[in-house]
Amino acid sequence: MRLGLRLPQRLGVDLQHDLVEAARTAEAAGYDSLWTYERLLFPESPLEPYAPPDVPWPESSRQVADSLAVLTAAAVVTERVRLGTAILIAAQHTPVQLAKAFATVDQISGGRVIAGLGTGWSSDDLRAAGATRADRGRFLDETLDVFDAVWGPDPVTFRSPRVVIDNASVLPKPVAKIPVMLGGGGSNLGRSTSAKAVQRIAQRADGWLPLLTAPGPAGAAELRASWNRIREMASEYGRDASRMEMVVVGNVTFTERPAGRDRSAFVGTLDQILDDVHTAEQAGADELIVDLNLQDWFTSTAQMLETAVEIREGALAV
Rank of each mutant, 00 (worst) to 15 (best):
M1S: 07
M1G: 09
R2S: 14
G4V: 12
R6T: 15
R10A: 15
G12Q: 03
L15P: 02
L19N: 00
L19A: 10
T25D: 02
T25Q: 09
G30P: 01
E38F: 08
E38I: 04
R39H: 15
L41G: 06
L41D: 12
P46M: 06
P49K: 03
W57L: 07
Q63E: 13
V64R: 11
V64A: 04
L68Q: 11
V70M: 11
A73E: 10
A73M: 06
A74F: 06
T78G: 10
E79C: 00
V81R: 12
R82F: 05
R82D: 13
G84D: 04
L88F: 13
I89T: 11
Q92V: 11
T94F: 09
Q97N: 04
A101Q: 13
V105R: 00
S109C: 02
R112A: 03
V113A: 11
A115C: 07
G116S: 12
G116L: 06
W121M: 11
S122L: 15
S123M: 03
D124P: 09
R127V: 04
A131T: 05
A131M: 08
F139H: 03
D141P: 00
E142F: 00
E142D: 04
T143Y: 01
L144F: 10
F147D: 00
D148W: 02
V150L: 05
V150H: 00
D154G: 14
V156N: 11
F158C: 04
V163S: 02
V163C: 08
V163D: 01
I165A: 04
N167V: 00
V170A: 10
P172F: 14
A176Y: 07
I178R: 02
V180G: 08
L182H: 03
S187N: 05
N188F: 01
N188P: 02
S192E: 03
A195D: 15
A197F: 00
Q199E: 15
I201T: 02
A202I: 01
L212V: 03
A218Y: 01
A220D: 05
A220L: 07
E222N: 02
L223S: 02
N228I: 07
R229A: 14
R229W: 11
I230E: 13
M233L: 15
A234Y: 13
A234W: 14
E236Y: 00
G238Q: 09
R239Q: 06
A241L: 09
A241Y: 12
A241E: 04
A241R: 14
M244K: 08
V247A: 06
F254R: 08
T255C: 08
G260A: 12
R263T: 12
S264F: 09
T269E: 04
D271K: 15
L274R: 12
A280D: 05
A283L: 13
L294Q: 14
Q295V: 12
Q295W: 01
T299H: 13
S300I: 01
Q303F: 00
Q303R: 15
A317H: 11
